[in-house]
Write a protein that binds this DNA or RNA. Structure first.
Lengths: 155, 155
DNA sequence: TCTAGAACCTCAAGCTACTTGAGGGTCAAG
DNA sequence: CTTGACCCTCAAGTAGCTTGAGGTTCTAGA
């Protein structure tokens, strides 16, 4: 196959068409070859590049990190250690986020539980749980790092 | 205290000054009273309102959800059940997110592990792990819902 | 009383990673 | 030759703030 159009590449890689164009616009993918009419043409090599990028994103690496990884992949003088370190650092923040969510889940559990038992269906202004929150008594773990899953989702 | 300025309110509630102004701009806080000079003045009641909002945000409720909760708090004809249901639904998505992160952490662990053992410091283009990703062999759980922690962090 | 600096004001733009929409060409089949 | 699927380029919208520019007001000390 010596030239697939953007829709075919999208289908092959599980990427949306606008996302591919977006990646090109921000320079994550190099500018694609064009037909005379202006439509983009991709080679099988492009499939590899985009697949790689998608996998990186599945690993939840940020675009900036993916840039680094993409560069690694084409630089013969680079070392795979860089990738390893990126992943290791990322793993740390994922674990942090998990701890945060565990604490949040516990807080939500007691929120729900107390709504049922301590309050039990009163009006908003009279709700004991909401009242506690207004007075700063009922707390949840303060939110911190937004590095994990830091963007609106993809359809 | 019959009137504190925005800086004092910020200190009391652990909110940044721009964030308070932002909440006012989007109508989450009602427009504050002003001095003749235009500087905002807050009452102790405002402390309660903002504290409530902050707590809701600590529970990671979205701004839209906080709006609902704030309205509950001042509507005598409302029922606390609404809050309970919001929290319960939120808990479900938090647990989903945790599962997702657990899977992601496992993938990252094997990424790091294989970088050390299977590849062990080769150049980027020759790295076995990166090569697998380019070929779509090494996968991570596809990223989905961005509802939890979906925004840039607060300092 | 004057003045320096802290604190306040209002826009406007930036951040992440895309998605969505408007308005319009291109291409393949019937 | 028309129809409909697919392609193009901007531009703006999403969440939840933060940051910056450019300017006013307040307050405490000399």
């Amino acid at each position: 196959m010596q030239g697939m159009k953007i829709g075919a590449l999208a289908a092959r890689t599980g990427t949306s068409v606008p996302t591919i164009r977006y990646y090109e616009a921000i320079g994550l993918l190099q500018r694609a070859a064009r037909q005379e009419s202006g439509q983009r043409l991709y080679s099988s090599e492009d499939i590899g590049r985009l697949t790689f990028i998608r996998r990186c994103r599945d690993f939840d690496f940020s675009i900036a990190q993916v840039r680094v990884l993409v560069d690694l992949l084409r630089d013969p003088s680079s070392t795979c250690t860089t990738a390893r370190d990126l992943a290791a650092a990322h793993l740390v923040s994922v674990r942090d986020k998990m701890r945060e969510l565990r604490a949040l889940a516990r807080s939500l559990e007691s929120f729900v539980h107390d709504c049922d038992t301590a309050c039990g269906g009163r009006s908003g202004p009279d709700c004991t749980v909401l009242g506690q929150m207004r007075r700063g008594e009922r707390t949840a773990p303060p939110r911190r790092a937004r590095s994990i899953a830091a963007a609106p989702g993809r359809a």
